[in-house]
Design a protein around this nucleic acid. Sequence first.
DNA 1: GTAACTGCAAAATATTTGCATCCTT
DNA 2: AAGGATGCAAATATTTTGCAGTTAC
Lengths: 131, 131
Amino acid sequence: METKVTFRNTQAKTSILLALSEAKCALSHAQLNEKLQGICDRVTIYRVLDRLISEKKVHRIADIDGSIKYASCHQCNHPKTELHTHVHFSCQKCKMLICLDQIEPKVVLPDGFEIKETNFTISGFCNQCNV
Amino acid sequence: METKVTFRNTQAKTSILLALSEAKCALSHAQLNEKLQGICDRVTIYRVLDRLISEKKVHRIADIDGSIKYASCHQCNHPKTELHTHVHFSCQKCKMLICLDQIEPKVVLPDGFEIKETNFTISGFCNQCNV
DNA sequence: GTAACTGCAAAATATTTGCATCCTT
DNA sequence: AAGGATGCAAATATTTTGCAGTTAC
């Protein structure tokens, strides 16, 4: 009774993955839509992003304000890992959200807590804006 | 030219602060609205929450999925601190978001980065649900 | 009395769904 | 050709804004 879904490689998917790969930071749906200049519909972007996340090619990050950003997993050092335990930095000036792969805080939870996913975001001014 | 705003103590504000204080976890706007049972309007809840955040009585947490939760600052050990550097735990089963005050990862950022705010959330199963 | 606060209606955003059509495989 | 993917329209949230009437101080 297993429903096997085969993902296809389409123009939209390729463009979206490329846009995310080229970006040096995570992008919101709106930023992606702007960057893609109408190559495909807004709705398609939502759907493709969902598929890319299922395929573990993209990961979804909740920014410090709750807005969702998407990042190509190749930007991180551990593309196939479920846990993205590294820190994200969100700049209050240039609005960029970047992955600080090197920085992975070690956290030990109290007994009984089982960790499945993490989202560590620090906000402030990045090294480009902090002059 | 300074505009001094004096916040007032109103019925809605008192009820909302009480609801958040009674809760053992952070609540979303929708959860608050339900708990308040029509004591005040949805819009009022948004506006009161904004005020309470300005007054540093409540803090705003982006949950792992990007949804916004509000927590009474008395739940934390450092009510007046700007930085809420402790870890939040978001349970995938019971949907509760709690503050783990004791746990504060130490993070050292690369040169040039200035830290203003943090949001560390870990998701999984809490000690109540993990049986 | 005055300025902050509230409720209601309406606008602005953001995300999801339905469905006919188009494209990969 | 079969079923996944897309575009467009429309339905659902979710959050914000305007404004007239109310209330705290």
